[in-house]
Design a binder for these strands. Sequence first.
DNA 1: AGTCGGAGGG
Length: 628
Amino acid sequence: MQSSLTIKASKLARGFTSLSTSLAASSPRRHVRIDGGGGGGGGTPVANKREAEQSCLASLRLCDTVPKLAQAHTHIIKSGLGNNPLVLTKFASTSSDLDAVDFACSFLFAPDADARLYDAFLFNTVIRACAQSKPRKALAFYNLMLRAGISPNKFTYPFVLKACAGIGDLSLGRSVHGSVFKFGFDEDVHVQNTMVHMYSCCGGGIEFARKVFDGMTKLDSVSWSAMIGGYVRLGESGHAVALFRKMQIARVKPDEITMVLLLSACADLGALELGRWVESYVVRESVQKTVELCNALIDMFAKCGDVDSALRLFRSMSKKTIVSWTSVISGLAVHGRGVEAVSLFDEMIAAGVVPDDVAFIGLLSACSHSGLVEKGRDYFNLMTKRFGIEHKIEHYGCLVDLLCRAGLIQKAIEFVEKMPLEPNPVIWRTLVNACRAHGELKLGEDITKRLIGKEPMHESNYVLLSNIYAKMSHWEKKTKIREVMDTKGMRKIPGSTLIELENEIYEFVSGDKSHDRYKEIYEMLDEMGREIKKAGYLASTSEVLLDINEEDKEDALNRHSEKLAIAFALLRTPPGTSIRIVKNLRVCEDCHSATKFISKIYDREIVVRDRTRFHHFKDGMCSCADFW
DNA sequence: AGTCGGAGGG
């Protein structure tokens, strides 16, 4: 309705016009243009100011794109409301599109703009718009606000704290916390909740988050979710689950966001039973089953080893997003079902869903885990050529991994040398590990030494080098590495295995005797050892990279955390049921071979999740076909 | 006269 309205160039309008045209020039794809006067004419003069205001506000309510906003701007000027604070602020708050907000800011904060128009609501609006994706910019506006002498109100801090969370700097967060206190908003539950969130997003801030959380007099579901989310982000999923139990005792009803977080913790821990409980809870308590919640369920099922349930849920969803597709494709990938993953990707394309860079990571890892070398290469090339998505370092990483796993180490090296991005340490470590596995020890040693030069405090570099020396039987060099690590105060991450039984999560480390039934567990371990030896198992002692004799090596192998967890499971679960365990590192070759025998002798399906993928053991075979 | 707030998915 405003399309015929044009501007008679007033002084103010001229200022706006030049600003907006320069903005248009800086973002050509938007084609923002404001008609600077002349042209059509014939606009009806507006009867009174109040009516004009209402008319402008009404037209702004309909704006959701930059061109529409530009049109509305024209209308505002025409109506003589170019300096009306109500209208201008509404203008800025109208679009969630950051480009549009930039566009609005370009005249709101123009040199010739009237600073008397600035108020807290205006700043809140622009801080909110930037908080998520441009946190530094949001904070710049906050500082501008303070410099302009405008006091923040209770709505300001949730936005500002969100921006601090995005930056993740603890000292910044603490200083903003000081301002919150100074302005007296530290009692507001919304502010407190965001404070918990902010601290938990800052490195080393979880204690501060907990302090705010513990000091709160009223905790709602958002408070609990913020704190649970903090633990999940930190990888402290056990703490997250424990906190959820406290939430239930406190009788605060969890909502769909709490459930998403809890599912994330389940996925991390491999806690399938708890994950299934979440699903039934959602149905029972009619928690809103949003797409995000379904996606979290898919991810949980896949990461807990039940990829078929993930698939079933995926098929039942009426609305799917790229995240849903990616979750299920990546899920199939880690289970070694690469062919299905690839065909699902093709189905997605056929359904007209546009893939993004993350979808390609899932797809390429599917090719990698299933040895689909040619397919992986093809998709890698199609990614840019057909879909116009630029390769990121992760995609190069996937391809290096693909070549290494397929044993094409020379090709992998050539690929790394030719890649246009600087290879990151992850890529180098993939390569080094392949060097070790394929006997390119000298090359592996050279690369690792360079890596240690670059990242002297990264322990996995030393572990890699140590493993290479062990394979070379250079024991004195290997010992020396241990010494270097000790003087730097570093330790190798101990291998550990999680298992969930009857609502409890148990953790085992190598040689663990902390469980109260450890004697039974070790007896079971001995029995397992005898039985699998009878069936033809041979300990693969070359994998034990310690400088000890063969017999001790075998003993060390027997006490690996995954074997302890399996023995425990055999004792505690009914015959014939599946066993699921989660290992924090990659499963070793000896445990892999032993587990195959155990699955056959004890007639159990054993699902092992290791750091990078799943192994489904059944009838003496593994789903990875010894390819991992 | 008075617009505005917190936690989440691959």
